[in-house]
Design a protein around this nucleic acid. Sequence first.
DNA 1: TAGTGGTCTAGACCACCGT
DNA 2: CGGTGGTCTAGACCACTAA
Lengths: 249, 249
Amino acid sequence: MKTSFAGLAPAPAFQPLYRQIKQLITELLESGEWRPGEAIPSEIDLAQRFSVSQGTVRKAVAELAGENVLVRRQGRGTFVASHSHARAHLSFLHVTPDRGRAERLEARLVDLKRVRADATSAGLLGLDPGGTLIRLRRLLWINGRGPVVLEEVRLPASAFRGLDATVAEAHRCMLYSMYEAAFGVKVVAAEERLKAVAADADTAHMLGVCAGDALLRIERVAYTYGGKPVELRRGFCNTRFHHYANALS
Amino acid sequence: MKTSFAGLAPAPAFQPLYRQIKQLITELLESGEWRPGEAIPSEIDLAQRFSVSQGTVRKAVAELAGENVLVRRQGRGTFVASHSHARAHLSFLHVTPDRGRAERLEARLVDLKRVRADATSAGLLGLDPGGTLIRLRRLLWINGRGPVVLEEVRLPASAFRGLDATVAEAHRCMLYSMYEAAFGVKVVAAEERLKAVAADADTAHMLGVCAGDALLRIERVAYTYGGKPVELRRGFCNTRFHHYANALS
DNA sequence: TAGTGGTCTAGACCACCGT
DNA sequence: CGGTGGTCTAGACCACTAA
């Protein structure tokens, strides 16, 4: 992601035309004009609609494709990125086996309940303090091995009305796909913070390790269009046979 | 980095013109025709030199700029990216304080010696097994706090002839800047693998923590132009007041 | 003021896809 | 085959920088 999220937006200033087009397209995506998985109009159509040249549309679309918001397919069209296809739920997963790749991801729901938002969560999600959160926990298996990660997910209840254990399990815990299909919430980016911590007794028991063992703690804030935070996550990862992979440039 | 490094290069196939230009520019960078920090010729000059249009050069340069190999500055020109300026050595540092940003990085050399390459290191660096490595260790302070990280760096001795503790300290342990200035090795990308581990007695002592405490282990392979590996690193990070930050998209 | 990269346009042709 | 995105070109103008 090139765009900067949280923090002070560095004053819009005057934007070039292609960025205005990009913003327009983003707003149309937010509005639901085009849904995840659908094709958006062709470049020529968009150019006419916005009264700009095809090249200008192309540059706007190229940036959105670079941010994984749109997907371009030669000969077919440009599509709204979707979490609802095989392997899509792997794109935000940086935990991989030490040997080989993460191919299959399975999840088992531990519990799901409604809780009051603490000040930190409310602040990160932009909620009123004391608002309601949905808090769910789950265990992850990778390529049939596990449990590798214990995850705790916090969601604003207002945006996920009707979410309960039955719904979550119906989507086989493929969360971002579920957010998208059942609640119209499209996750497009996230920020993670990692620390090494000692396992507490409960977590250790659920991951099948000893209390005090070193675990990788992964905290995530996930964002939808426009950098709006929509999900908080905290995972504890057993890195005995897995690691967190990251590419730098 | 969009380009895929290690592993099976997926067959070059026929490349569009702008990728051939990109490859040409990369080769000229490798050859040292333009050194880090210098300006490369203007787009118009390059277009004439390669007998293509300015737009084609522009697209090649844009990709290289996106990979942080080149830096474009409106009104001034296009420059070869360099680690030799303030804050440059922070661009590969994902460890940041829990509050605020990493602004100042200080390093203290612990030791530096020549060792035989083990099979794993030789394999990763593409050396003959039994080749010679330079192995150095150092401690990192961030914004005056620390030590936060204990790092062990392994380099192929053949590419870093003459590197000793005196040289390293003369460059104040700004390693990538030193590689570039003293040895002509330009690091352009890296891959990191993270695990949580228990501190051994030595490491704990150097980081001022207790043996057995959880530490974040960061392993890195750094690459120069063309995806050639040139450095191995293993860091142990005390995440009591710091974390590893990562943006997903 | 001259030179640089940044934007925008217009049009041609290519490569790929589905019918 | 027609329609899509991908490439390449050529030229005009803008925004920024340095002298």
